[in-house]
Design a protein around this nucleic acid. Structure first.
Length: 474
RNA sequence: GCCGGCAUGGCCAAGUGGUAAGGCAAGGGAUUGCAAAUCCCUCACCCCCAGUUCGAAUCUGGGUGCCGGCUCCA
């Protein structure tokens, strides 16, 4: 079988994936800032993390996965420049920020479940790890990577020569391009905050750095990832917006503390676009999972839409595109149903030919080529075409079904609930189908249509063909 | 202004030098007691311009458009 190769943002090339510890993968994903419900764009990144997880697991690797919850506000960097989002949201809603965190987190986990994203092994919260952050900052101070100005602590980017390697930014260029007012107390404009103090902040902690402090944006991720995964681990992912400054700063902090290579492989997903441009509140196209359902779609249709595109290409989200994805997903689901039906039913006439083997190879080759999900999905549809055009004998059909189930295991295509919880047991359906055919032979169409309606109500699709009637669950 | 990425049919989307995967939609046909489902057929020369090459969607240069970043603030 081909070997898995992944694109590393750090080296800007594809490289074979080799876990540090054979058979095991340790990875960390930048999770949501829980100040408001994540939108579908955020979920693209989380779906990508899940795709990695499932691909590894389907390959027989043991995965240890951590995703943080940022529950202390930071700049996220849009129009609200200069505001702590959690803090601002709390003031706006006139509620305790901790309440917002609780509400949004709960919503987030419900969304993950709806998307059939496998739960990470840890979801550490920033506010539960203030101690670890402070400890790292103290080490950075000791080692000369950080300096203190009053009750604030900054990372000295000149103390870390690799700063800028991930993003390709040069410290000198950053200085030249800075559009934000220079903070005069920093030694260099590119230095970033590790700890800040402000009595007016709603969420604040008393530490060695003073009475009213709160952590800088980046330190939580190095503190938490190293706590749960060690000084050095395999994979770290996030949206493309995280490359700089967030991940750049994480590397500086983590390697500044440990002196070891922090992460071997950095992966980033492109942003989801909406109607050819970026999502924005002013255009009213920042959608949540609820918006999809209100338009009559299933959450999994969105999952499928995202997986139809390569993770490093921007996906254009439109309602029309989602409709197309929903239809395609349904067709794949029906294909699986037909394979199941065939295996239950009488032997099928089929041309000799082997389709599942090549499809399986194409599927894995595509996935191994930097998770080329659209090509992997195409292999499935080609298998379906081979089936409809030439038919398959039982062993071949069983093999095809097995491949579809593997694809479902990796992509999370089908609703797990409905997959095996039909209202009617198979023998009963078979009996009804037989009764209907008998009625049709007797031209008792009232009775046959009645049975058809009954089965349709139970979610059973009938296919009347020249060689008899096949059924599958919708 | 600076750095980086992308641009494929009505829509979504693979494809990085050898002559355009796949899906959705659409049109035509078959099948059917009616219907559904199903089946068959049709449907692109790859943003523009100029180059390199026997040959480019794929490489180079220049446009145009879209996307990300340019770092903690009050």
């Amino acid at each position: 079988m081909s070997q898995l190769r992944l694109y590393n943002t750090l080296t800007r090339r594809l490289q074979p994936f080799v876990p540090q510890e054979p058979g095991k993968v340790k990875m960390y994903h930048c999770g949501p800032t829980v100040y408001q419900r994540p939108h579908i764009g955020n979920y693209r990144a989380f779906l990508f993390a899940d795709l990695l997880r499932r691909t590894f697991e389907a390959s027989g690797l043991e995965v240890l996965q951590v995703m943080n919850l940022t529950d202390v506000g930071h700049l996220v960097g849009d129009a609200d420049e200069g505001e702590d989002k959690l803090d601002a949201q709390a003031r706006k809603e006139k509620v305790d920020p901790w309440q917002i965190v609780a509400t949004v987190s709960e919503q987030f986990f419900q969304d993950l479940e709806a998307l059939q994203i496998r739960p990470a092994h840890h979801y550490p919260k920033a506010t539960d790890h203030i101690e670890e952050m402070v400890a790292q900052i103290e080490v950075l101070l000791e080692k000369g990577h950080a300096y203190r100005v009053g009750d604030n602590v900054y990372f000295d980017v000149h103390s870390f020569p690799d700063y800028g390697r991930l993003s390709g930014n040069k410290v000198a260029d950053l200085e030249a391009g800075a559009r934000v007012e220079v903070n005069q107390e920093k030694r260099h404009p590119a230095d970033f905050a590790l700890w800040k103090s402000d009595p007016r902040h709603l969420m604040k902690w008393k530490t060695v750095f003073g009475e009213h402090g709160f952590p800088g944006w980046h330190i939580e991720c190095s503190a938490m990832s190293m706590k749960y995964l060690g000084d050095s681990f395999d994979l770290h992912t996030g949206g493309e917006d995280n490359v700089f400054p967030h991940h750049e700063c994480e590397i500086a902090q983590a390697e500044g503390v440990s002196g070891k290579t922090f992460v071997n492989l950095w992966m980033h997903t492109k942003f989801l676009q909406v109607d050819g441009g970026k999502m924005s509140k002013s255009l009213g196209n920042v959608y949540s999972l609820d918006d999809l359902e209100q338009r009559g779609f299933e959450v999994l249709d969105f999952r499928f839409l995202v997986l139809r595109a390569h993770y490093r290409a921007s996906v254009n989200f439109t309602w029309k595109a989602l409709q197309g994805a929903a239809e395609a997903r349904k067709n794949l689901h029906d294909f699986r149903g037909r394979l199941q039906a065939q295996l239950r039913g009488p032997a099928m006439q089929a041309e000799a030919g082997e389709h599942s083997g090549p499809a399986r190879k194409a599927f894995w080759d595509a996935l191994h080529d930097d998770l080329n999900t659209s090509a992997a999905l195409a292999a499935l549809f080609e298998l379906r075409n081979a089936y409809t055009q030439k038919g398959m004998e039982a062993t071949e059909a069983a093999d095809a079904l097995d491949l579809l189930n593997l694809a479902d295991d990796i992509f999370g295509l089908f609703d797990q609930e409905s997959a095996d919880s039909g209202d009617l047991p198979d023998p009963e359906i078979d009996a009804l189908v037989e009764e209907r055919n008998q009625a049709r032979r007797n031209r008792d169409f009232a009775r046959s249509d009645q049975i058809r309606d009954q089965l349709a109500a139970a979610g059973i699709v009938l296919e009347d063909g020249p060689e008899g009637t096949l059924w599958h669950r919708a």
